[in-house]
Amino acid sequence: MSVEATGETRSVVTAATIREILVERAGVDPDVFTGNELLSLAELQIDSLAVLELQAVLVERFGVEIPDESVTMTVGEIAAVANEDR
């Protein structure tokens, strides 16, 4: 059943949400994000295990999936993908 049919609203996944998950659930140092908005997760030296944790949390909390290649994307790009078709 669609969100429209049930009357439920879905939360928007923001870049701040992505950063929060990576910090709280994957142990990423929050300072790594400061001034680095245009760098991919790989360029920020965030490993694939952290991305797997991010993927799991996004499915759990928001019911959305992000691609395995998210490690090559910026935080903003990941947020945009998570919000597609919502």
Rank of each mutant, 00 (worst) to 15 (best):
residue 40 S to H: 12
residue 27 G to W: 06
residue 16 A to K: 15
residue 37 E to G: 14
residue 45 Q to N: 15
residue 57 V to F: 06
residue 28 V to T: 15
residue 58 L to N: 02
residue 60 E to R: 10
residue 37 E to W: 09
residue 62 F to T: 03
residue 12 V to K: 08
residue 62 F to N: 00
residue 43 E to H: 08
residue 63 G to T: 05
residue 50 A to H: 08
residue 57 V to W: 04
residue 63 G to L: 03
residue 13 V to C: 02
residue 48 S to G: 04
residue 46 I to F: 05
residue 55 Q to P: 00
residue 66 I to H: 01
residue 11 S to V: 13
residue 53 E to Y: 04
residue 29 D to K: 01
residue 7 G to W: 09
residue 46 I to M: 03
residue 16 A to L: 13
residue 46 I to V: 13
residue 36 N to H: 13
residue 19 R to A: 07
residue 59 V to A: 00
residue 8 E to T: 15
residue 21 I to Y: 13
residue 27 G to L: 06
residue 23 V to L: 09
residue 6 T to A: 12
residue 32 V to H: 09
residue 39 L to K: 15
residue 30 P to M: 03
residue 33 F to W: 11
residue 49 L to E: 00
residue 26 A to V: 11
residue 20 E to C: 09
residue 64 V to H: 00
residue 62 F to H: 11
residue 7 G to I: 15
residue 25 R to A: 10
residue 63 G to K: 02
residue 44 L to Q: 07
residue 15 A to Q: 11
residue 5 A to E: 15
residue 41 L to A: 05
residue 34 T to E: 09
residue 21 I to R: 06
residue 23 V to E: 05
residue 54 L to V: 05
residue 9 T to G: 11
residue 45 Q to I: 14
residue 15 A to N: 04
residue 25 R to V: 10
residue 7 G to E: 07
residue 38 L to V: 13
residue 36 N to L: 03
residue 56 A to Q: 06
residue 10 R to H: 08
residue 29 D to R: 01
residue 12 V to R: 08
residue 55 Q to K: 08
residue 7 G to F: 14
residue 28 V to M: 05
residue 61 R to Y: 02
residue 16 A to H: 14
residue 59 V to G: 00
residue 22 L to Q: 04
residue 40 S to P: 09
residue 4 E to G: 05
residue 15 A to W: 03
residue 66 I to G: 00
residue 34 T to I: 13
residue 51 V to L: 09
residue 31 D to F: 08
residue 42 A to I: 08
residue 53 E to G: 05
residue 63 G to V: 11
